[in-house]
């Protein structure tokens, strides 16, 4: 087993936080403020604009549900990839990371389909403030999905050579965070605004 894989096995017994993981937590702390700031602004405006409910009924709830299931499934595959890397099974880790990438691409395809139908129906980002927030929040989230897919693909190449196996956990933490953001965006934009 490589030195990197051994280091991964020792991760839970280590008295300190690994540098890579610490860096990832710092990134996520800043991401909380970026996404959270936008969500706070949305909530405050939504509070004052009950008429946004009329716009919100036009969001596609079915695709919202499908994308939620897709992202939750991708969270499962990446955590299982981390588990495989933790046990030194590079082939299984690589395969599960591949599934995660496919699920991430599926999410983007559903999102693109949804956007195209909304724009075709006249619900563009300049239609009103609700749609501006909708495209900003979901677009920012989609950009994070793209960044996550690039990161996972990069780490996957290394895993194939049994190098830097500990990085599976780091990209996994990032990917789960993107999932957590969607867990809040789904009710905010698809379920609750209709009320």
């Amino acid at each position: 087993m490589s030195t990197a894989a051994t280091a991964t096995l020792d991760r839970y017994e280590s008295p300190s936080v690994a540098t890579g993981r610490m860096g990832m937590w710092w990134v996520l702390a800043s991401e909380i403020v970026i996404f959270g700031g936008a969500v706070v602004c949305y909530l405050l405006y939504r509070w004052h604009h009950p008429e946004w409910a009329e716009s919100a009924v036009h969001t596609n709830e079915l695709i919202g549900v499908i994308n939620t299931v897709v992202l939750l499934t991708s969270s499962l595959t990446i955590v299982l990839a981390h588990d495989a890397a933790h046990h030194g099974d590079a082939a299984r880790a690589k395969r599960l990371m591949g599934f995660t990438i496919l699920l991430g691409l599926a999410f983007l395809c559903f999102k693109a389909y949804e956007y195209s139908h909304e724009v075709a129906a006249g619900f563009t980002p300049v239609k009103n403030l609700f749609w501006s927030f909708y495209y900003f929040l979901t677009g920012l989230h989609a950009l994070h999905i793209v960044a996550g897919l690039i990161a996972i693909a990069t780490v996957m190449r290394g895993v194939g050579r049994r190098e830097n196996m500990q990085r599976v956990e780091y990209v996994g933490i990032y990917w789960h965070f993107v999932d957590v953001v969607w867990i809040f965006l789904f009710p905010l934009l698809y379920l609750a605004p209709k009320f």
Binding site: W25, L28, I32, G37, V39, S75, I173, F177, V180
Partner: peptide
């Protein structure tokens, strides 16, 4: 559930929890 079990925040050091909590406090 995702934070605790998939991101293993439950097993993480307390300062990590405080760091993430400070972001939420800012919000």
């Amino acid at each position: 559930l995702v934070l605790g079990y998939y991101m293993h925040l439950k097993a993480e050091k307390n300062w990590v929890k405080w760091m993430l909590g400070s972001g939420v406090a800012c919000l």
